[in-house]
Write a protein that binds this DNA or RNA. Sequence first.
DNA 1: GCAATTAGTTTGTCCTGACAATAGGATGAT
DNA 2: ATCATCCTATTGTCAGGACAAACTAATTGC
Lengths: 246, 246
Amino acid sequence: MANSLNLSIDRSSPIPLYHQVVQGIENLIHDGTLVPGSKLENEIDLAAALNLSRPTMRKAMDELVRAGLLVRKRGVGTQVVASQVRRPLELSSLFDDLSARGSKPTTDVLTFSHIDADAVICEKLALPAGAKVYHFTRLRKVDGKPLALMENWVRDDVTAIEETSLADQGLYAILRNAGVNFRLAQQRIGAMVANSYQAPLLDTVPGSALVTMERTAVDDTGRMVETGRHVYRADQYSFEMTLVQR
Amino acid sequence: MANSLNLSIDRSSPIPLYHQVVQGIENLIHDGTLVPGSKLENEIDLAAALNLSRPTMRKAMDELVRAGLLVRKRGVGTQVVASQVRRPLELSSLFDDLSARGSKPTTDVLTFSHIDADAVICEKLALPAGAKVYHFTRLRKVDGKPLALMENWVRDDVTAIEETSLADQGLYAILRNAGVNFRLAQQRIGAMVANSYQAPLLDTVPGSALVTMERTAVDDTGRMVETGRHVYRADQYSFEMTLVQR
DNA sequence: GCAATTAGTTTGTCCTGACAATAGGATGAT
DNA sequence: ATCATCCTATTGTCAGGACAAACTAATTGC
């Protein structure tokens, strides 16, 4: 069972060795070479087989354990988790997620303004009173059918935002292009029933179930760049994630 | 700004050094000694100040970065994230969460049976056809008010479950006591509107919003031990989490 | 004055080596 | 046969060193 993984490591590549191992094992699990429940060789031998040091091998396996693909037990070994693992939902935008799945998301910009932030928004973005922010609401459709109604506030000292660019691409893509490196986000997921404003926009009826998501995103300098409140049609969207015990 | 952290490391303690550092810095952030946005000393000096090696210091900081408390940038340094940090919601049970918050959760066991798993459950728990499982539905109340309606299936080869013990403690506590070490869970969060069965149990009206959660938990041997479908009153519960970019 | 180069700081990656802790099976004694 | 003990395999923790890459700021050259 414990066959040495058939991986190729490119030491001249700019991408870190441990990350190459992560991707390699991920692929082996995805294409079925590593079947769920099977045991891996011990990390010492694996490292030797790939001409890597043990810490590097360990770092790769750590990532996979955190991602929920592997399970380790001291004195026993490492196993492939028996589950059809979905992407552990990292910090990404809805637009990117949908695009990656092959759907074609479109965006209608419903409102767009550059305004003084009210007290609540100043609080959420840790801005001084009187700061200005971009505020806009968008309707996200996929294959022509409405999926999400999104309201966002973005601090205006990171980049200028044009209404037209919001129609073309996701908010996160715009901010990334402007040099913003997102690091983490605080998120809250709940539920509500559609009101008479939301229902027609989402092509549903008042009283139908909606998933709500509030998020505030922080960049690599510790600034809170963006906060927003989104609602999704519950029959077309839900949040999947993998929780890992530490 | 860059004052050496005032931490005490106990080398004789059984808890790992890096974890002591994690807890120490967590406490400093919580009690306000390390204010949001402030810069930490560089890892080399910090390690030296605590008489630790750099890898150990780094491992501690890695954890804190993953937990969303710190933000690092090459060539620049490490900062405390400017956010009112909530617990990143790990793999824990509702019962434990509520208890930790000081609430007093109670449980009504509505149904309890030991049955043949149907095809869907066998699929979810990766069990062979014809395997038996425990199936039960519970109503979780806090301070006497209903909060969640929970339906669960547990494979029966991990431990025997008594209906009476479910009323006293959380499911995860029972399984942990039986020697089950949970490692990860796949989770999906969505929304629905209360139907005529759920509404009276949750002390609300049909048509009100509910948060739905489906979860399958895996233990350290890779077995899928438990799967369940829970619904929560949307006005009393939501899921909070911190997403970290890797 | 302004841009390009350079130097210094800090985190990122990778290596080697060592010992500890745990799980599980093998072994031995009762 | 059953229980306790030992042994082995494997992961967990920790140290110390080396170089690379990215960012900042100062210096230099024009």
